[in-house]
Design a binder for these strands. Structure first.
Lengths: 211, 211
DNA sequence: ACCTGAAGCATAGCGTCGTTATGCTTCAGG
DNA sequence: CCTGAAGCATAACGACGCTATGCTTCAGGT
């Protein structure tokens, strides 16, 4: 029988991977060019490390996108559900934007080729949190029965992504995001069936969790 | 007195600029890497042409972004205003999306650094068309007096950009755009004050101009 | 206890990238 | 006719991603 399990290398291979990905995130945050030689300069490793662990720069970028998605998922997990699912949806939107503004370069990198990820289930998981909140909103009668939770989540995602990108690229100021995001979310939730004034209050409470 | 007006060079300088920018757009559309040497290979010019006319690759990218904006503005100009301003807003959204899907690589390039354009007035002009339609909607009582036309236009832009980017990057299928865009637009216009059913009809008519 | 073979890594080099220095050609203005 | 600046071709430079090569290390079999 062929041994499928790869033997554990003497230096924990996963550790080198983490160091390189984190260094890439550092370079991105510092707006430094993420070059092969700049990556390994700080770690003491040689350029070959990128090829043994990632198979080349495209593989490293894939890992970096995965890291961005992991941070996003962790940030969304910090949003604890409450009795008000519409507030929760707004809070998830605020957390999403908060994460993007905290790591703008990493956020942009994610969407360079988000279609090809190492682990697509991580993306599905993060999106599932949004859908789950929308389902609860429908169960509690805030959204009409004909409202599709996946559609609401998709529209939230798309609008949030659009506003976030325009702010990150410098087209719109940060204040514009704070001004428009709650308004757009309210419009979407009201269209899904929520009562106008009640929705406005829920969104305001949920969005204010951003600080 | 010093002559400020530059003399006309023997080969019309503007022509070379246009050729190079168009070649860049070709390479982008063909998904070929836009390198300095690939640019000049087809034109018979040498690499120096890029430096005499654009001062380097960043300058060329600026010109390419401007070209993308010009095409977008031309596409939006083809939308003739009607008696129904809400229909017009939806038609402008459809034209925007149509242009982006026709030139996806050029569209992405535009937003790589849309904040730094050669001629920001071109962007303001294209955006102004959107604002003007929103103003007409308010004047005709479709939107409430408290609705801010610029806010509606900004929210339309952001949501359209988000949906478009998700489709271009391959996250969402094209059908998703056709399914969600009219719904989001309707939600925004209803939030601005339009009547639900009337808005739905106007958006459907305006969006259907996409074909 | 020795041998074997694969994995991890350092070094050196390749081709291509954007960029620049240099010199030739062309032509308007005096 | 002379002068000087603009446009362009050539060649070269440093930095980039990538790869070929050989050394070191150590688990697993005999």
């Amino acid at each position: 029988m062929v041994c499928i399990i790869r033997r554990v290398p003497r230096t924990a291979s996963a550790a080198v991977r983490l160091v390189l990905v984190e260094r890439a995130a550092q370079l991105l945050a510092r707006r430094d060019p993420v070059t092969l030689r700049a990556l390994v300069d700080g770690t003491g490793a040689s350029t070959m490390a990128v090829y043994t662990h990632f198979g080349g720069m495209p593989g490293l970028w894939r890992a970096v996108r995965q890291e961005g998605l992991t941070r996003l998922a962790a940030r969304l997990d910090r949003v604890r559900p409450t009795a008000d699912p519409v507030r929760d949806l707004a809070a998830l939107g605020a957390a999403y934007v908060d994460n993007a503004l905290a790591n703008p370069a990493l956020y942009r990198t994610m969407y360079d080729a988000v279609a090809e990820l190492d682990d697509p289930r991580a993306a599905a998981g993060a999106f599932g949190v949004l859908v789950a909140a929308a389902v609860r909103a429908r169960e509690q009668g805030r959204f009409t029965d004909s409202a599709d939770p996946e559609a609401v989540a998709t529209q939230m995602w798309a609008t949030g992504h659009g506003l976030t990108m325009l702010v990150i690229t410098g087209v719109l100021p940060r204040e514009a995001l704070m001004a428009h995001a709650p308004a757009v979310l309210t419009a979407l939730f009201v269209a899904a069936g929520d009562d106008g004034e009640r929705c406005r209050r829920s969104v305001q409470v949920g969005w204010s969790t951003l600080g």
